[in-house]
Computed example of a mutant assay.
Amino acid sequence: MDDIVKQALAKWPNVPSCTGWLMLDRRGNWRMRDDAAQASGSSGVPIRHEALLGFINRNYERDERGQWFFQNGPQRVYVELGYTPWVVRLIVEPDGTLALKDQAGNDFEPSAVLADDEGAILFADTSAQPRVAVLHDHDLEVFADHAALAEDSLSGEFHWKDGVKLSLEPVRRADVASRFGFVPSPAANA
C-alpha cells in the first residue's frame, strides 16, 4: 500500500466505502462504472491512464471476507470481478521458457491449473497467500501448445517451466469463487 494512502487512512479513518464503481473485467482491464453502467449492468469504461492504473494495482487488496478492493486514499472502493481477482497472461520468453504475469505485471507462480465447464483456464497459487487467476482468452493457444489435453479438454497436464508438469483439473465455474474464497460482487454482499 502506498504511503500516501496509509497517511490518508490515519487522517480520515471513517470514510464510508463504496461498491459498484470499479470493475476488473475478464481480460484484466480496470473499468469505471458510472450510475448508468451500474444500472444497465454493463462493464463500464476502461481506465487507460497509466499512473492511475499503477496506483490501483499497488493498492489492490483483499479484506477478511474475501472481497477485493482498491484503497483510494481513505476510501475503500470494492471491486466487481468479471471472474477472478487476478487475470494472467501466458508469455513465451525469448529463451522459450514460459512466464505468467498478472494484470499488475507481477509474476504469478502456479501450483495448479484448472479448466472450467465454460472453457476458461485458471491458474492457482496455493502457497501461503493463495491466489487464483483466469488466463486471458488471447493466450489459450499458447496454453494449448504447452498442454497435453484429453478429449474432454478438461483433463490432462500443462507443461510448465523447468520440466514441471501440472495436472489439469476440471472445475465448475459456479464453484470457483467459493472454492478460492473470494466474493465476485461485493455490492451484493453489502
Rank of each mutant, 00 (worst) to 15 (best):
R58D: 12
L98D: 01
E80S: 09
E64H: 12
Y78K: 04
R58K: 15
K101D: 01
A99D: 10
K101P: 00
A112M: 14
Q75T: 08
W86H: 15
R76E: 07
D63N: 11
D95M: 03
T84L: 05
Y83S: 15
W68L: 07
P85S: 02
E80H: 13
R58G: 10
Y78Q: 04
A112W: 14
F70D: 02
Q103R: 06
V88M: 00
A104Y: 08
W68C: 02
R58E: 14
W86G: 02
L81M: 06
G82H: 02
Y83A: 14
N72Y: 14
R62H: 09
P74A: 15
E80V: 12
D63F: 08
E109V: 15
R62M: 13
E61V: 11
I91F: 07
I91R: 15
V79D: 03
Y83D: 12
R76T: 12
V87E: 01
R89E: 08
T97L: 10
E64C: 09
V92A: 05
V92M: 04
E109A: 13
Q103V: 08
A112D: 13
N106S: 12
V79M: 04
N59E: 09
F69K: 06
G105D: 04
P85L: 03
S111I: 10
L98E: 07
K101T: 11
Q103M: 12
R65V: 13
F108R: 01
E64L: 12
P94C: 02
N72P: 00
N59V: 06
V77G: 02
E93D: 13
P85W: 03
A104I: 09
V87W: 07
V113L: 09
R76L: 08
V113Q: 10
D95Q: 11
T97V: 08
V88P: 00
I91A: 01
V88N: 00
P74H: 05
D95F: 01
A99N: 07
Y83T: 13
L100R: 07
E64D: 13
D95W: 06
E109N: 14
Y78D: 02
Q75S: 06
I91N: 08
S111Q: 11
L98N: 03
